[in-house]
Design a protein around this nucleic acid. Sequence first.
DNA 1: GTGAAAGCGCTAACAC
DNA 2: GTGTTAGCGCTTTCAC
Lengths: 345, 345
Amino acid sequence: MVYDKENFKNITIKDVAKRAEVSIATVSRILNGKDRVSPLLAERVLLAVKELQYQPNDVARALKIKESRSIGLIIPDIENPFFPALVRGVQDAAKIHNYAVILCNTDGKTEEEKKYIQFLYSKRVDGIAFTESVDNKKNIALLDSLGIPVVLLDRRVEGMKASGVSTDNRLGAFMATQHLIEKGKQRIGFISGSPKLSSGADRASGYQDALLHYSIQYDKKLVFIGAFTYESGYAAVENLLLSRHQFDAIFAANDIMAIGAIECLNRYGIRVPEDVAVVGFDDIRLATWYKPLLTTIRQPVYEMGQYAIKLLVEHITGERSCPYEKIFAPELMIRQSSGGLEESK
Amino acid sequence: MVYDKENFKNITIKDVAKRAEVSIATVSRILNGKDRVSPLLAERVLLAVKELQYQPNDVARALKIKESRSIGLIIPDIENPFFPALVRGVQDAAKIHNYAVILCNTDGKTEEEKKYIQFLYSKRVDGIAFTESVDNKKNIALLDSLGIPVVLLDRRVEGMKASGVSTDNRLGAFMATQHLIEKGKQRIGFISGSPKLSSGADRASGYQDALLHYSIQYDKKLVFIGAFTYESGYAAVENLLLSRHQFDAIFAANDIMAIGAIECLNRYGIRVPEDVAVVGFDDIRLATWYKPLLTTIRQPVYEMGQYAIKLLVEHITGERSCPYEKIFAPELMIRQSSGGLEESK
DNA sequence: GTGAAAGCGCTAACAC
DNA sequence: GTGTTAGCGCTTTCAC
């Protein structure tokens, strides 16, 4: 199988026109169903299309109408268990609107993000769905100067410079902490995500809100800054253990860190949930496969991906002109790692 | 932020030419570095490019040179834990060669695959990396007739109609079964994947090979056809249990089914690995997070994705004209679910 | 309602 | 070396 381009008779609109004995303008009109055309010609054209197996060249179309029917999706890493569902939501929604999704992994590097934005711009994507790694607004500004519609994924938008889709992280963290408190826990450790991200900062706020609300002293010795990774969750607990500060619960700002935390606790012979209760955040699939089943805050990730594209398309078509922020409600999923549904002891 | 296309002065090669006081041909030459140009003009052009922040329009370029610098990636479902690493490998390799990756999820439906192939063709992708859901050759033939280079992912290629990248599934299954046998197991249940897929069929063969090699009677009552899903793994074991046939081990054709199997065993109070040893296939990340840690056959999934793009690019550039089959070696990862490294009892 | 023709932004002969 | 120009395949005025 030699892929010699020349061997493949690229059927163009011209071929169809010739076969149907009409002008190329007529073919175009019929295929796009815009102007009115006589049914007679339409029939002839459609027949020719079928006979020749004609597939319009979207590249040429894109050049002409300045609309590529493709969008960029920039995320840190598809291997991070948080993203597959998000990506799937994006892709499913994009498919409905007939957009191609170009996937980009940045590993959370601002420089990579910038490169990809330029790359996507050269491809003249119609819009970009973007999970920024750092909330630095620089890349948003770049996008803005390029005139590319953006929707921020899993990020709250400071100053509403762009539309965004996220979960109410602050509320979610409040609920998680509250759950632990209602379980009778008083010394609740917190493993934060990166405070540079709105998701990280908001979850930290929610944790503090809950302590305040229940009149529990905030103790910064119980707080560690993680990086949303397994390793950072593990390390945080190890540090906590070595510091010899008492604690009876851990709230980790995402599930992977929670699992890292539990692994570390187990390693030191501490039982979850008997000795220490643990709550995570995100409700990734693993949360229900891991043992103990992980109590966590569910984000409707798939729906967030879908909604982001809905918004993005509205911006692309001009249906919506002002930035809009969609915030989904978090949901507490009570499972084993926090002691389940039983009463506090 | 109104995305009014008109507001954004689309800088074209013409603008650059005017500013640098040269012809557009010269600009093109300099940017593509093909023909020789005088350093003087080159400098002027490069300056103009920078000043105007010119970004070439790849759509126009694609139309002209008939090369879109994009490839399609068709998989069943990015939410299936097997795929993220594969996708990442594909994307990283594509990035090196400057190709955009268009992601397509088919849920394993042949009809969806066909639609996506046509969609990608209308976008004039330069090639497609494809994880077929059913080995029916029809879509491969379609691709062939369209003149689109393909590389099959995770699929062995019957009759070498296209290039493919896979793991030696038969050998892997042999190793898994052998491991169980060496652990002293004699009645080894097998949960197959879809036999319509080469990966499913080959793993079944490997299982039989091993039994034969160790002179263990093949007992079809111990064999179930699953669907590579958690549920099918669970159901298989439940059926086995209800059938009351004795068994002391389970080899599941992928990790998710193995986990489904273990969950079911636990549900019925059967301990893994004490009562029944379990081995999976793939070595997805979850295999090392699940409890018990899953003994499994590792496929170098990320590398497979990378290699597929290497092959695909070779086909696209014409460097390689004949189909080639790359087969990676499987690796046995011994962990808890099969009783670990200790001797058989 | 239909066709002729211009032109989207680029590359690559082809002249000079 | 450099500029002029045709044309990739399509949509869309503009005449008729």
